[in-house]
Simulated assay, not measured.
Amino acid sequence: MEIQQKDKYTLVRIDASTQDQFEQKWEGLKTNHLVVEVSENLNIDNSKISLFLNIASDLKVNGMSFVVIKSGIDIDDFPENLNIVPTLQEAEDVLEMEAIERDLGF
């Protein structure tokens, strides 16, 4: 697992060998907007999605954003309140859009 502090968010890169570390340590990452880049070798199943949904809900309550970066998946298969995008640039765009929504009171 690789963790990078960016100016406006924390970027976490996980793969099959580090997914358990993320599940154990994400509580300590709740102080900033969180972007999780999921490796191509890691399949997202329903148990992982429920973890991501819980994280997204917890962060949203605290005025933070959560975005998953994973290419090659059909986002229609996942709940609407989970932001899944294929690139880091799109993740940054989602963070900016959500910041604007918060500023406008949505």
Rank of each mutant, 00 (worst) to 15 (best):
L29G: 04
P86C: 09
I3Q: 05
Y9D: 13
D15F: 02
A99M: 04
L51E: 11
L104E: 12
M1Q: 07
R102D: 07
S47D: 14
L95F: 04
L53P: 09
E101V: 08
Y9N: 11
L82Q: 02
V94T: 07
E27C: 00
N62E: 14
E23C: 00
T10D: 05
V38C: 02
M1W: 00
P86Q: 08
N43F: 09
K25E: 04
M64D: 03
I69L: 01
D76L: 13
M97G: 08
K6T: 14
N83R: 07
F66N: 02
M97E: 07
Q24A: 02
Q5R: 13
G28M: 11
S17R: 15
S57E: 15
L34D: 05
L34A: 07
E98M: 08
V38W: 01
S17M: 12
L53N: 04
Q24N: 11
G63M: 08
L88P: 08
G28T: 04
F66K: 04
E23P: 01
D15S: 09
Q5F: 15
L95P: 01
T31G: 13
L42S: 08
I75G: 03
G105N: 12
E27V: 01
K48R: 15
A56G: 06
D20M: 06
D45Q: 13
A56Y: 11
P79R: 09
Q19Y: 12
W26V: 03
D7K: 07
W26K: 08
S17L: 14
D76G: 15
F22V: 03
D77E: 11
Q24I: 03
S47A: 15
T18S: 13
V68F: 00
D77P: 13
D45R: 04
M1S: 06
S65I: 04
K8C: 04
E80G: 13
K25A: 10
Q24M: 05
D7E: 12
K8D: 11
L51T: 13
A56F: 13
D58L: 12
L11M: 12
S17T: 15
S57P: 10
L82V: 07
D103C: 03
V38Y: 03
I73W: 06
A56T: 13
N41I: 12
D103Q: 14
V85G: 03
Q19R: 10
K70Q: 10
I55L: 05
W26G: 01
M1G: 06
I49R: 06
D58S: 15
E80F: 11
E101N: 13
D45I: 14
E96T: 10
K25Y: 01
V12W: 00
L42H: 15
T18L: 08
Q19S: 14
V35P: 07
N46C: 06
P79L: 11
P86E: 09
K30Q: 09
Q89V: 01
R102T: 10
A91L: 03
D74M: 06
S17F: 13
E96Y: 09
Q24Y: 02
A16L: 15
N81R: 14
S65V: 02
I55G: 02
D103K: 10
N81I: 08
S50L: 12
F66H: 04
I44E: 09
K48E: 05
N54E: 12
E37T: 00
M64I: 01
N43I: 14
S71H: 04
V67F: 00
F66M: 03
